[in-house]
């Protein structure tokens, strides 16, 4: 991670260092910037960080380590059950678990589609919001709606919209003479339909971040290019997109991780059905842990999921870095 240098701090358009704030004593001679990191300073840092470190240790680091370890045991949620270290037994069993790999495959399709489609949709919206259009204020408010909705509510809303008998979507289709579709019930449409919902709820966040990135591109670049006669498409391709590359990388990576690990939306929307067509790995693992009560085996699945995410991300990062170099040279 590089140094964070926000142009101005979020939340205060004026900037905190505005001259005239009462505490600013002007013209005081400066001390040398970075003194030797003294012992005192280290103690001070520790004191500042401890309140945050404590909950993180107890409720995040310890559980995480325990969770990884559980994946190598036969622990269960049965009464008075004892758990033993079983080494790689869970994993050899997992190799032959066709249900898990099917859910894994669905999870990958889902996460990649959600990440890419969200990016494309958000990029379009961000460009429109960045263009000098009317009604900017109200559109920006409306565009944030999906972000504000709790996932459970999102699922409830879209169940209503996708309803095969009383949903507005099918009513709309039938009004223009098309046949209604059983969106969440039909095997071929269930996964795409759920992906659309995830994209819908992910658009605002990505749009906001892309918008922020766009507003950092110096307007002179665009103007100079426009004077040179470059079309808006070319300007987008040669100025906007390259400048946004780091943002795009961050957004797609995060969206991929979050989608792959997401639970609430699909749990309420389809519960993995029909016929397991939307059984994301998180759902499958949840069932293994809290219905089948095989927590050790479920933790092993969790470990495999982490491994997969890390692999995909490293691959993506590698490609990204190489492309970055190619552009620079």
């Amino acid at each position: 991670m590089t140094t964070l240098t926000p142009t101005r701090p979020p939340g205060d358009p004026g900037g905190p260092g505005t001259p005239g704030s009462p505490e600013t004593p002007g013209g005081v001679p400066r001390r040398p910037r970075r003194g030797t990191a003294s012992r005192a300073q280290r103690t001070e840092a520790a004191a500042l960080v401890i309140p945050a470190t404590l909950p993180i240790l107890v409720f995040s680091v310890i559980p995480l380590v325990t969770g990884i370890y559980l994946g190598f045991t036969n622990s269960t949620l049965r009464r008075n059950s004892t758990s033993e270290f079983t080494g790689l037994e869970n994993y050899s069993r997992l190799l032959g678990d066709t249900f898990f790999w099917e859910s894994f495959r669905i999870g990958l399709i889902w996460a990649v589609s959600v990440a890419l489609l969200t990016l494309v949709a958000a990029l379009g919206l961000a460009l429109l919001l960045n263009a000098d259009l009317k009604f900017k204020g109200i559109t920006r408010v409306l565009a944030l709606i999906p972000w504000a909705m709790p996932p459970v509510v999102v699922a409830i809303v879209w169940r209503l919209i996708y309803s095969p008998t009383a949903g507005p979507l099918n009513a709309g289709l039938e009004a223009v003479g098309l046949e209604g579709v059983n969106w969440l019930g039909d095997f071929s449409t269930a996964l795409p339909a759920v992906i659309v919902v995830a994209v819908w709820s992910g658009i605002p966040q990505s749009t906001v971040l892309l918008l922020a990135g766009m507003q950092q591109i110096p307007i002179e670049q665009h103007e100079a290019a426009a004077v040179d006669g470059a079309s808006s498409l070319r300007r987008f391709w040669h100025i906007t997109l390259p400048a946004l590359r780091p943002v795009i990388f961050a957004i797609t990576s995060l969206d991929f991780i979050w989608s792959f690990n997401s639970f609430g939306l699909v749990y309420v929307l389809t519960e993995g059905g029909p016929g397991g067509k939307t059984m994301l790995p998180m759902l499958f693992t949840y069932l293994e842990a809290f219905t089948n009560r095989n927590t050790g085996y479920a933790a092993a699945m969790g470990n495999v999921m982490v491994l997969a995410v890390v692999l995909v991300l490293s691959g993506y990062l590698f490609v990204q870095l190489r492309r970055g170099k190619a552009v620079q040279s």
Partner: peptide, 30 residues
């Protein structure tokens, strides 16, 4: 569901200027 959405919606309404004015840039650039 509507009632459950209102608090978040109100907060996002209050934050929207900050969210869409590009002020999150710092967080993204890192």
């Amino acid at each position: 569901a509507v009632l459950a959405t209102i608090p978040s919606l109100v907060i996002f309404g209050l934050l929207q200027r900050r969210l869409t004015s590009g002020s999150l840039a710092g967080a993204v650039k890192g």
